[in-house]
Simulated scan of single mutants.
Amino acid sequence: MEVRYANHPDDYKLYSTDTLRKHFLIEKIFVKDVANLIYSHIDRIIFGGIMPVDKEIELNNAARELRVKYFLERREMGIINIGNDGVVKVDGIEYRLKNKDGLYVGRGAKDIQFKSIDKENPAKFYVSSTPAHASYPTVKIEISKANPVKLGNLETSNERTIYQYVHPAVCKSCQLLMGMTILEPGSVWNTMPCHTHDRRMEVYFYFDMDDDTRVFHFMGEPQETRHIVVANEQAVISPSWSIHSGVGTKNYTFIWSMAGENQDFDDMDFVDTRTLK
């Protein structure tokens, strides 16, 4: 499990492009037959990719690094499959996840395995996990059962649908919020005017992009912005003090995961675009 440490906004202002990418960008999410996980000291979120091909992947293999008996002993987890059909087995119960199906797994689930239905066309499970103080039931969340929120329009190049998976409108969780945003063809902006939410951090995982498509992920304090160029199936850690916004060379899809003080999706401090620097 790779560890990423927290960064002070004053330090970040001095970072070169390479240093910025080193601390905030994860360039490789999916690795064959590996639970490729990243542990961020920002709100103790764990995220990453699980791509079973030739074998089932047992999540508890990562528990040793957390100094717990099993991975979700003190955590909860959200899963969204962005690949082909796969199965997640939770304490003996199998949940078949098609493309863009999700699963919430509550604290206390002990045995968790991941497998693909067809090794030639493997599943790709994107996972996010946060510390949890209570246990809630495991819930399968097909995209048809996620809560859709349509925002933006073509005039501002940001027509998109936000699918809320792990969210109070869909299922109970302790602090994890997780969902997926799909931009319509012709739309490239996510959230402009941009915003911060000092009470919650966020991780963005970008996918469904062409090989030559790039997203310019904007971050930093509103008067000291930077950008990170992101390719397909890469992720960015966005601290709570950072603006949350991005623009692509073409439409794209991303999974967002949040951890922090509350579960109020609308808890955003919007920034006047005229004040950005």
Score class of each variant (00 low, 15 high):
residue 211 D to T: 04
residue 181 T to Y: 03
residue 184 E to P: 07
residue 183 L to W: 01
residue 1 M to S: 15
residue 175 Q to R: 14
residue 214 R to H: 05
residue 97 L to G: 05
residue 92 G to S: 11
residue 55 K to A: 12
residue 114 F to M: 04
residue 204 Y to F: 15
residue 165 Y to A: 05
residue 73 E to V: 01
residue 111 D to R: 15
residue 65 E to K: 13
residue 159 E to D: 14
residue 274 R to Q: 13
residue 13 K to I: 12
residue 115 K to W: 05
residue 52 P to E: 03
residue 229 V to R: 05
residue 48 G to C: 06
residue 125 F to V: 06
residue 78 G to T: 06
residue 101 D to H: 02
residue 259 A to F: 12
residue 140 K to M: 13
residue 9 P to D: 04
residue 76 E to C: 13
residue 61 N to H: 14
residue 100 K to C: 04
residue 263 Q to S: 08
residue 8 H to K: 07
residue 168 P to H: 10
residue 123 A to N: 03
residue 121 N to I: 13
residue 24 F to N: 00
residue 215 V to C: 04
residue 207 F to E: 01
residue 205 F to L: 07
residue 248 G to I: 08
residue 51 M to V: 00
residue 140 K to W: 10
residue 115 K to G: 14
residue 252 Y to K: 05
residue 191 T to R: 05
residue 176 L to I: 09
residue 110 K to A: 04
residue 218 F to R: 00
residue 199 R to K: 15
residue 273 T to V: 14
residue 137 P to Q: 06
residue 181 T to H: 08
residue 66 L to F: 06
residue 214 R to K: 11
residue 114 F to S: 02
residue 35 A to C: 08
residue 188 V to T: 15
residue 48 G to N: 04
residue 136 Y to N: 15
residue 25 L to K: 09
residue 186 G to R: 06
residue 112 I to C: 02
residue 47 F to Q: 12
residue 77 M to L: 11
residue 232 N to D: 14
residue 129 S to C: 08
residue 147 N to M: 03
residue 274 R to Y: 11
residue 212 D to N: 09
residue 28 K to L: 05
residue 232 N to R: 13
residue 55 K to Q: 15
residue 117 I to R: 00
residue 143 I to W: 01
residue 83 G to P: 02
residue 260 G to V: 10
residue 47 F to D: 08
residue 142 E to H: 12
residue 36 N to P: 07
residue 85 D to M: 01
residue 206 Y to S: 08
residue 148 P to D: 03
residue 217 H to A: 03
residue 29 I to Y: 03
residue 140 K to N: 11
residue 264 D to V: 14
residue 230 V to S: 03
residue 212 D to M: 07
residue 199 R to N: 15
residue 190 N to I: 04
residue 23 H to L: 08
residue 2 E to Y: 06
residue 128 S to V: 02
residue 160 R to P: 02
residue 171 C to L: 05
residue 131 P to H: 08
residue 242 S to K: 03
residue 225 T to A: 02
residue 115 K to A: 15
residue 216 F to C: 03
residue 25 L to N: 01
residue 176 L to Q: 12
residue 66 L to G: 05
residue 1 M to R: 07
residue 47 F to H: 13
residue 231 A to R: 01
residue 34 V to H: 15
residue 16 S to Q: 06
residue 188 V to L: 09
residue 17 T to I: 13
residue 30 F to C: 03
residue 240 S to N: 14
residue 108 G to M: 04
residue 194 C to F: 09
residue 9 P to Q: 10
residue 130 T to A: 06
residue 268 M to A: 13
residue 122 P to H: 12
residue 209 M to E: 04
residue 198 D to R: 15
residue 149 V to E: 08
residue 245 S to T: 10
residue 251 N to R: 09
residue 116 S to T: 09
residue 54 D to K: 01
residue 277 K to W: 09
